[in-house]
Amino acid sequence: MNVIEMNRLTKHYGKSRGIADINLTVEEGEIFGFIGPNGAGKSTAIRTLLGLMRPTGGSATIFGQSCLEHPDIRRELGYLPSEVFYYDHMRVRELLNYSAGFYKKDCARRIRELADIMDLDLNKKIDDLSFGNKKKVGIVQGLLHEPKLIILDEPTSGLDPLMQQRFFDLLAEENRKGATVFFSSHILSEVQKMCSRVAFIKEGELIKLEKMSDLQADSYKRFTLEAASAIRAEDLQIEGVSKLENGQGANSVTFMFKGDINDMLRRISGIELRNISIEEPDLEEIFLHYYAKEDRAG
């Protein structure tokens, strides 16, 4: 079953660009990453999906229903906004109880558990919390009713590395219990660790949707060569080479390569090498590479 469906989803506001023609589906049990630089339209897509905004065109549904027409479907939804703001005069416990009150089930035990995991003091006033602690309130608030779909917008900003790790463990645990997770980020390493599929968004358009495993395996290798004498760029210019540039040191080069690895190795064998490394590029590099290419094409 598709838990999230966006069908030609479009949202313009005024002059500024929103999103255009976004198509994507997220299946039950997936951890799905939504990647793009700041201002690409990630939040717009999420907010339209949640029913905070009305699409200009197309449709967005969760569990097969639009949040605008069937607000009740959000009973199974947990959402963590990118910036968390709550009623300042309330205590953490009051806020969480208020939140739990919307879901018609007893969440008291789960609130305690989550607060323990995230190391959150329930008796503090929201007003007195630091940004990171407010984020923790947001996390507990988003998960306390054990939702079947968890949507997170830039979830880790403001959390220290230890809390990030606990938070990701928590998400993985929820996912094991059957929850579908959808999260947006511009930090690729966190997506890389968790997601089974990713969608890339740029300037309001979805430019790529791939399985994480395909993305890493099929595509690029990063070569770093260090030679005894200067390397001539022409020696390496075969199809599939990109981003060929000088590395650290006079006689070293780095480049990305996509294609038959044997062709490349035959080329390299003609060079007197001091050192070589061939690595899987991390997502960040693929990502930058991808965007750079798009820029050139456009």
């Binding site: 905070l52 607000p71 939804l77 959402y79 703001f85 300042d88």
Partner: peptide, 15 residues
């Protein structure tokens, strides 16, 4: 104004 819309308006209640 208090930016709590992301809290209240994603709850399972209609506008």
């Amino acid at each position: 104004r208090e930016r709590t819309a992301d809290f209240l308006l994603v709850k399972p209640v209609s506008r």
